[in-house]
Measured scan of single mutants.
Amino acid sequence: KVKIAGPGLGSGVRARVLQSFTVDSSKAGLAPLEVRVLGPRGLVEPVNVVDNGDGTHTVTYTPSQEGPYMVSVKYADEEIPRSPFKVKVL
């Protein structure tokens, strides 16, 4: 029921550039959304989540370095389908 889309989860994500993606939970009811961005060697990146007021949230983060990242998206305390997402930061 929760959908996710945006360039911040795709290929070609650049280090030190603001990345974003949208989480659409409009068909999933009200529940807490939790997003974690883990970088190389367990680095935890700050994440900004904005409630758009229409059942969607815009998530932004800036990867601080190149390497493999994991983006975990939980809704109602459960990983959404395909989460955690593997993101290769260049």
Rank of each mutant, 00 (worst) to 15 (best):
residue 49 V to I: 12
residue 4 I to K: 01
residue 12 G to F: 12
residue 70 M to T: 15
residue 83 S to F: 02
residue 51 D to I: 07
residue 35 V to Y: 04
residue 10 G to K: 08
residue 41 R to Y: 12
residue 87 V to E: 02
residue 16 R to S: 11
residue 6 G to D: 05
residue 63 P to F: 02
residue 55 G to T: 05
residue 12 G to R: 10
residue 18 L to P: 12
residue 5 A to T: 05
residue 43 L to G: 11
residue 80 I to Q: 02
residue 16 R to M: 14
residue 19 Q to P: 00
residue 38 L to A: 12
residue 17 V to C: 08
residue 7 P to T: 12
residue 69 Y to V: 04
residue 21 F to Q: 01
residue 28 A to S: 09
residue 26 S to Q: 08
residue 81 P to V: 04
residue 84 P to L: 02
residue 78 E to G: 04
residue 55 G to S: 10
residue 8 G to P: 03
residue 82 R to P: 09
residue 89 V to S: 12
residue 59 V to G: 02
residue 43 L to T: 14
residue 18 L to D: 08
residue 82 R to S: 15
residue 7 P to N: 08
residue 14 R to Y: 14
residue 86 K to E: 15
residue 78 E to A: 08
residue 83 S to A: 05
residue 45 E to A: 07
residue 73 V to N: 01
residue 39 G to C: 05
residue 73 V to P: 01
residue 36 R to Y: 08
residue 29 G to D: 09
residue 77 D to I: 00
residue 29 G to F: 07
residue 1 K to R: 08
residue 51 D to T: 12
residue 2 V to P: 00
residue 47 V to F: 06
residue 30 L to K: 14
residue 35 V to C: 10
residue 34 E to N: 07
residue 46 P to D: 10
residue 73 V to A: 03
residue 55 G to P: 01
residue 38 L to C: 14
residue 89 V to G: 04
residue 14 R to M: 14
residue 41 R to L: 13
residue 23 V to M: 04
residue 32 P to D: 12
residue 56 T to I: 14
residue 80 I to W: 01
residue 64 S to W: 09
residue 23 V to S: 01
residue 11 S to R: 09
residue 26 S to K: 09
residue 7 P to E: 10
residue 32 P to W: 05
residue 43 L to V: 15
residue 86 K to L: 13
residue 42 G to K: 10
residue 87 V to R: 02
residue 8 G to Y: 01
residue 69 Y to D: 00
residue 43 L to N: 13
residue 75 Y to I: 07
residue 58 T to Q: 10
residue 10 G to A: 08
residue 51 D to K: 14
residue 52 N to F: 07
residue 7 P to D: 11
residue 23 V to H: 01
residue 47 V to L: 06
residue 46 P to I: 05
residue 37 V to Y: 02
residue 13 V to F: 04
residue 48 N to F: 12
residue 59 V to R: 00
residue 49 V to C: 12
residue 15 A to W: 06
residue 9 L to S: 03
residue 79 E to V: 04
residue 61 Y to A: 00
residue 36 R to I: 11
residue 52 N to S: 07
residue 31 A to F: 07
residue 73 V to Y: 00
residue 15 A to L: 08
residue 59 V to P: 03
residue 39 G to I: 03
residue 33 L to T: 03
residue 30 L to R: 14
residue 18 L to S: 10
residue 43 L to Y: 11
residue 36 R to W: 06
residue 76 A to F: 06
residue 73 V to T: 01
residue 90 L to P: 12
residue 31 A to T: 03
residue 33 L to M: 07
residue 41 R to C: 14
residue 16 R to H: 13
residue 19 Q to D: 00
residue 46 P to V: 07
residue 74 K to D: 01
residue 88 K to T: 15
residue 3 K to W: 06
residue 55 G to M: 13
residue 50 V to L: 11
residue 32 P to T: 09
residue 76 A to N: 13
residue 45 E to S: 06
residue 18 L to W: 04
residue 85 F to K: 04
residue 9 L to V: 07
residue 17 V to D: 07
residue 40 P to L: 03
residue 47 V to W: 04
residue 74 K to Q: 06
residue 2 V to R: 02
residue 25 S to K: 11
residue 12 G to V: 12
residue 22 T to N: 07
residue 45 E to R: 04
residue 84 P to V: 04
residue 88 K to V: 13
residue 35 V to K: 02
residue 63 P to A: 04
residue 89 V to I: 05
residue 60 T to G: 06
residue 8 G to S: 03
residue 8 G to N: 04
residue 82 R to A: 13
residue 50 V to M: 09
residue 48 N to Y: 11
residue 23 V to C: 05
